[in-house]
């Protein structure tokens, strides 16, 4: 009973945060909605007794949202009048929801069959996760780290390009 009520509250936050993310004009309010959604999802992970995922989710999402906020304040710095007008916003959202609904229906149908394929989840502690990650799943781990490295290098190149071009044209 307690778990059910907690889950309902967290699910409301997830859905509410997601709706806030897509309907707000200001980028910072969208980021806040995203953050609320991610924190509630971390709570759901905690309900499933997976400590490591919950904390990793909080770390990653909070860090990402903070950097996103600072970036949009310092670099983009869109004023109120420069934001896009977004006419008939809610009609477009409703139309896209209707178009995506077959996929939603399929996912919902598959849920009742999917969990039969999941193994019984034992309590996953950080230690177990660490051992598994470095023994059986080490190849995906390394691929993900290479992906992150390319993302970082790309970000640095994009951020530096203006300086280099400015120097060359002087």
């Amino acid at each position: 009973m307690l778990e059910l009520s907690l889950f309902v509250i967290l699910a409301l936050f997830i859905v509410g945060g997601a709706v806030a993310t897509i309907t707000n004009r200001q980028p910072l309010f969208s980021a806040f909605g995203f953050l609320v959604s991610m924190l509630a999802m971390a709570g759901v992970f905690g309900l499933l007794e997976n400590q490591f995922l919950a904390l990793a989710q909080i770390m990653v999402s909070v860090g990402a949202v903070v950097v996103l906020n600072i970036l949009s304040i310092m670099t983009v710095n869109a004023k109120e009048e420069n934001l896009p007008k977004e006419l008939h916003k809610y009609r477009w959202i409703l139309l896209s929801a209707v178009l995506v609904s077959p996929v939603t229906f399929l996912i919902y149908k598959s849920m009742s069959m999917a969990y039969q394929h999941f193994s019984r989840l034992e309590t996953v502690s950080t230690k177990v996760m660490g051992e598994r990650l470095f023994s059986a799943w080490v190849l995906p781990f390394e691929i993900v780290s290479i992906l992150l490295l390319t993302a970082m290098v790309g970000a640095i190149v994009i951020a530096r390009k203006k300086d280099v071009i400015a120097k060359e044209t002087r």
Binding site: Q51, F52, L55, A56, I58, M59, V62, G63, V66, T126
Partner: peptide
């Protein structure tokens, strides 16, 4: 430790 790192960033 993980808790402190996660919540301290909020």
């Amino acid at each position: 430790v993980l808790w402190y790192l996660a919540i301290g960033a909020v």
